[in-house]
Structure formats: C-alpha cells, structure tokens
C-alpha cells in the first residue's frame, strides 16, 4: 500500500458513506450538505487523476453553484419538505435490490474485462493537458462543435428555466 492508495481509499470511503447519507437522510438540507461532501470527494479524486482543472471546475460549478441552487430550492419549497415525513417511498426495498443487482452486474462485467487491472501510464511531462484542452476546445478539427453546442444548450436551459420559474404578473 502506497500513501497514494491509502488517500484514495479514505476519500472513496468518505464519499460513498456521504452518498449513502444523501439518499437516506430525512432532512433535505442535511442531504444537500452530505452531497457537497461527496462532490468534494470526487474533486479530490480528479486531483489524484492529474486533472487539476476538472477538480477546480467541480468545486466551482458543483459546490459553488449547483449545490447552492439546490439548497435554495429546498428552502423555497420548505412547506412540504418537512423533516419529519417519511422520505423513502413504499418500494424502497425494490429500489435497493435493483441497485445492488446493478452494482453486482457491473462488477462482474468489469472482472471479465482484461484491462481491468490496468496500471498507470506515465504522463508526458512536455504536454500540458490544460493547454491541450484550451486548444482542443476551439479548434475545428477537435471539439469546436461540442463546445459551442454546450454554450447553446446552457443558454437554452437558462431561457427555459426562467420561463418556467418566473412568477406570472
């Protein structure tokens, strides 16, 4: 066990524990705070994978914006989201079985795959992924189209959300 492995296991355990809390907590604000812990754990995982930019984007976008938006919504719809109500529906055991089956199936499939125990290739130190990313996002023979379409998608989401959430005067 290298220190890196220990760090990974720690982060993974905390994240998974947090994820279980997210789906079981009765109090929704608590669930949202646990969700933030999970998102942070995923950001640390990105750092371990040498994707520093994605880790920062994860914190800025998910924790700084999406989680805050969720907490705001929870507080706006507070009247029905009481902490005392049962938060799981009557078929929760069925959901549990499906999830467990899915997990087992995925693990089984992964173990069939020979690249499963793949070890880490070295990064080429002369190539900066961040530079590559910046170049790739706006060059026509790489990812220009997805990049622009993502922008259009976000603006469409903005327009749609404003239309839906606005109070009719």
């Amino acid at each position: 066990m290298t220190p890196l492995q220990i760090i990974f296991l720690l982060v993974a355990a905390i994240s998974l524990g947090g994820a279980v809390m997210v789906v079981t907590r009765q109090n929704l604000v608590h669930a949202a705070l646990w969700l933030i812990l999970v998102l942070f754990g995923v950001a640390v995982t990105f750092v371990l994978l040498n994707a520093g930019f994605l880790a920062m984007a994860q914190v800025v976008i998910y924790i700084g914006a999406i989680a805050i938006l969720m907490i705001f919504t929870i507080m706006l719809t507070r009247k029905v989201a009481k902490d005392t109500d049962e938060q799981l529906n009557s078929n929760w055991w069925g959901a549990g079985i499906i999830s467990l089956l899915l997990f087992g199936g995925v693990i089984l499939m992964l173990f069939q795959w020979q690249n499963f125990q793949f070890n880490l290739p070295n990064l080429n130190p002369s190539v900066d992924p961040l530079l590559q990313l910046g170049e790739g996002l706006v060059s026509p023979n790489a990812f220009l189209l997805p990049f622009e379409i993502a922008s259009v998608l976000l603006v469409a989401a903005l327009i749609g959300a404003i239309m839906v959430a606005r109070e009719r005067k």
């Binding site: 994240s15 998974l16 994820a19 279980v20 997210v22 789906v23 999970v38 109500d85 049962e86 938060q87 799981l88 529906n89 078929n91 929760w92 069925g94 959901a95 549990g96 499906i98 999830s99 467990l100 899915l102 997990f103 995925v106």
Partner: peptide, 13 residues
C-alpha cells in the same frame, strides 16, 4: 457511487 445514486432516484419521494 452510481448504484447509490440509482437507489436515491428510485427510492426517494
């Protein structure tokens, strides 16, 4: 993580 998320989607009210 995916399975836990799926459980949340299916089981939460």
């Amino acid at each position: 993580l995916f399975s836990i998320g799926l459980f949340g989607v299916l089981a939460r009210k």
